[in-house]
């Protein structure tokens, strides 16, 4: 029983990281229907900005995170302006290829500038405290990531549901042309979406660095893919869906490793994804929109 509870804790903290990345993924998708494959790499850039702000500037972890979020928000807006905006009216698959291009570009420009070796996050940035709850090992960083994921999701949900910007986002997501007619600046709204999404990725990146102690230029690929799967699992484009998908993914992987065989962890995780898609093709929280003829 203790082992099971421990696995739940493990799964939740792993899932929180996935959820954080998935939030940004799903948000961008929700507005412009683009699978932003560069999202994982923006997370990597965020992690590196955090790393340098900690080591070179000697800031504390909160300042580092804010710096990373601002830097990545700017980066996200630039990427959108340069690479995605010219493609807004062409096929989505062309935009997808551009996203792959941007992803490769971010990875290899980082390797070019900093080398491919990993960098170690300073331990002092986030001193680890372990809480022993009757044999259950819970770390302060576990609580930190889970709480941040939930809080950021709530803030995001608030922005989208109750602010004017959020309203604009929903309008753009529903019908771009109609949104323009209603006096909404589509360009501005999409820029804001990218800024928020990228800032979330940066937050996830810094947390990833804190959590797993190292950052490297290719670190975004696998978590990016897993988070994307999580977003689809929950129903891509739906904020609470990404959250639930992320946690579910984390729990699933943990349970397979803990009670099945870790050798088949990824295969089972992907298998469950396929099963869920087959039963409910729009993901767990997805709305079934009838096809318009």
């Amino acid at each position: 029983m203790l082992e099971f509870t421990q696995q739940i804790v493990n799964g939740l903290s792993l899932g929180a990281i996935y959820a954080l990345i998935a939030l940004g993924y799903t948000m961008v998708y929700g507005i412009i229907k683009l699978i932003n494959f560069a999202h994982g790499d923006i997370m990597m850039v965020g992690a590196f900005v955090g790393y340098f702000s900690l080591t070179l500037l000697g800031t504390n972890i909160m300042v580092a995170m804010v710096t990373a979020m601002i830097a990545c928000a700017v980066l996200g807006v630039i990427i959108e302006k340069v690479a995605y905006r010219p493609l807004r009216n062409s096929t989505r698959i062309a935009a997808l290829i551009t996203a792959i291009g941007v992803s490769l570009f971010l990875e290899y420009i980082t390797i070019f500038l900093l080398g491919p070796s990993q960098k170690v996050f300073p331990e002092s940035a986030f001193p680890i405290k372990a809480y022993d709850l009757a044999g259950l090992s819970v770390l302060n960083k576990d609580i930190f990531v889970v709480v941040s994921a939930v809080v950021l999701m709530l803030i995001l949900q608030y922005i989208i549901k109750w602010t004017k910007t959020g309203k604009a986002m929903r309008a753009v997501s529903l019908d771009q042309e109609a949104a323009v007619l209603m006096g909404i600046s589509v360009d501005k709204t999409i820029s804001i979406t990218f800024a928020i999404g990228s800032a979330l990725a940066a937050a996830a990146g810094v947390m990833y660095g804190v959590y797993y102690s190292t950052v490297n230029p290719l670190m975004g690929i696998i978590p990016g893919l897993k988070a994307f799967v999580a977003a689809v699992l929950g129903g891509i484009g739906i904020i609470p869906g990404a959250m639930v998908g992320g946690f579910l993914m984390g729990l699933l992987e943990t349970m397979v490793s803990g009670y099945g065989s870790s050798l088949y962890r990824d295969a089972v995780a992907f298998g469950v994804l396929i099963l869920i898609l087959l039963i409910k093709p729009t993901g767990l929280f997805g709305k079934d929109t009838g096809e318009k003829v």
């Binding site: 690479a83 493609l87 062309a94 290829i97 551009t98 291009g101 941007v102 992803s103 570009f105």
Partner: peptide, 10 residues
């Protein structure tokens, strides 16, 4: 390679 990909697509 990445730049060529992006430029061709744009």
């Amino acid at each position: 390679y990445a730049l060529i990909l992006i430029i061709v697509m744009i």
